[in-house]
Amino acid sequence: TTFEIRVGDLRITLHNADEEEIRWAEEALRRGIHADEILRTLEERRR
Rank of each mutant, 00 (worst) to 15 (best):
T1D: 13
T1C: 15
T1V: 12
T2E: 15
T2G: 08
T2N: 09
F3V: 14
F3I: 14
F3W: 10
F3Q: 14
F3G: 05
F3N: 14
F3C: 15
F3A: 11
F3H: 14
F3S: 15
F3L: 15
E4I: 09
E4Q: 04
E4W: 03
E4D: 10
E4N: 01
E4V: 08
E4H: 05
I5F: 03
I5G: 01
I5L: 07
I5D: 05
I5H: 01
I5E: 05
R6S: 15
R6A: 07
R6Y: 13
R6W: 15
V7P: 01
V7N: 06
V7D: 07
V7I: 14
V7Q: 05
G8C: 02
G8R: 02
G8A: 04
G8S: 03
G8E: 08
G8Q: 04
G8N: 05
D9F: 06
D9E: 10
L10I: 13
L10H: 14
L10N: 08
L10A: 11
L10M: 13
R11P: 03
R11Q: 06
R11S: 15
R11T: 14
R11L: 11
R11K: 15
R11Y: 13
I12G: 01
I12H: 02
I12P: 01
I12N: 02
I12M: 11
T13Y: 06
T13I: 14
T13C: 03
T13H: 10
T13L: 09
T13M: 09
T13K: 11
T13W: 04
T13P: 05
L14Q: 00
L14K: 00
L14F: 04
L14P: 01
L14W: 04
L14G: 01
H15N: 12
H15P: 06
H15V: 07
N16P: 02
N16H: 07
N16W: 07
A17N: 03
A17Q: 01
A17R: 03
D18Q: 07
D18L: 04
D18V: 12
D18I: 13
D18R: 08
E19M: 11
E19N: 08
E19W: 12
E19I: 12
E20A: 05
E20I: 08
E20R: 09
E20V: 12
E20N: 10
E20H: 02
E20T: 12
E20Y: 09
E21G: 04
E21C: 02
E21M: 04
E21N: 02
I22D: 00
I22K: 08
I22C: 04
I22L: 08
I22S: 05
R23F: 06
R23H: 10
R23A: 11
R23Y: 11
R23M: 12
R23T: 11
R23I: 12
W24M: 07
W24D: 01
W24L: 08
W24N: 01
W24I: 10
W24E: 02
A25F: 05
A25G: 03
E26P: 00
E26A: 13
E26W: 13
E26G: 01
E27K: 09
E27T: 11
A28G: 07
A28R: 05
A28S: 14
A28F: 05
A28L: 08
A28T: 03
L29V: 08
L29E: 02
L29D: 01
L29F: 06
L29M: 12
L29K: 01
R30T: 14
R30P: 00
R31V: 09
R31Q: 10
R31T: 09
R31H: 11
G32C: 06
G32R: 01
I33V: 15
I33W: 13
I33K: 05
I33R: 08
I33G: 05
I33S: 06
I33T: 09
H34V: 07
H34K: 09
H34P: 14
H34L: 12
H34Q: 13
A35F: 10
A35N: 14
A35V: 14
A35K: 09
A35H: 10
D36S: 12
D36W: 10
D36R: 06
D36I: 11
D36T: 10
E37L: 09
E37Q: 07
E37A: 03
I38G: 00
I38K: 00
L39K: 10
L39W: 06
L39G: 03
L39P: 01
R40I: 12
R40Y: 11
R40H: 15
R40L: 14
T41S: 09
T41P: 00
T41H: 07
T41Y: 12
T41Q: 13
T41D: 08
T41R: 03
T41V: 14
L42A: 01
L42K: 00
L42N: 00
E43K: 05
E43D: 09
E43R: 04
E43I: 09
E44D: 08
E44W: 05
R45K: 07
R45C: 04
R45Q: 10
R46S: 03
R46P: 02
R46Y: 05
R46C: 04
R46H: 10
R47N: 15
R47S: 14
R47H: 15
R47T: 15
